[in-house]
Amino acid sequence: MSRLLLSNVSPYWGPLLMLLGAVCVGLGAVVIGRFFRSSRPTREKLEPYECGNPAIGDTRGRFSVKFYSVAMLFLLFDAEALFLWPWAAQYHAEGLFFLFEALLFIVIVGIGYLYAWRKGAFEWR
C-alpha cells in the first residue's frame, strides 16, 4: 500500500507495457511482412512434412499417458512449492519454531515423493 501511495505510477503498468510491446513486435513482424513476401502455394508445398512421403494415419492421435502423469505430478509439487514461498520470504525474521513447521511440511510431502518414486512414477516408460 505504502509503495502505491508513494509512487504516483502503479508498478503494474510496467508488465502491461511490456505485454503490449511484445504483442506489437509479434503482430507487426507477421502482418507488415505480408505486403513484402510472395505467396505461391502449391499442393505439394502445403502437405504436412513427413520426409517426402504422403502422410500416414491421423496426426492428432493418441500419445503416451506418461505426458499426462508428468503434468499431474508437476502440478502437485508446484502447489507444494507455492506453500513455501510465503514461508521463505519471512524465514529470516522468525525463529526455530517457524523452521520446524516448514520441516514438517516438507517431510510429509517427501513421503509422497518417495512413494511416487517407489511406484515408478518417475520412470519414463
Binding site: A29, F36, S38, P41, L46, P48, Y49, T59
Partner: peptide, 11 residues
Amino acid sequence: LFTKEGIEPAG
C-alpha cells in the same frame, strides 16, 4: 526471413 514466403500447410 522478413520477405520469405509464409507457408501455411493444409489442415
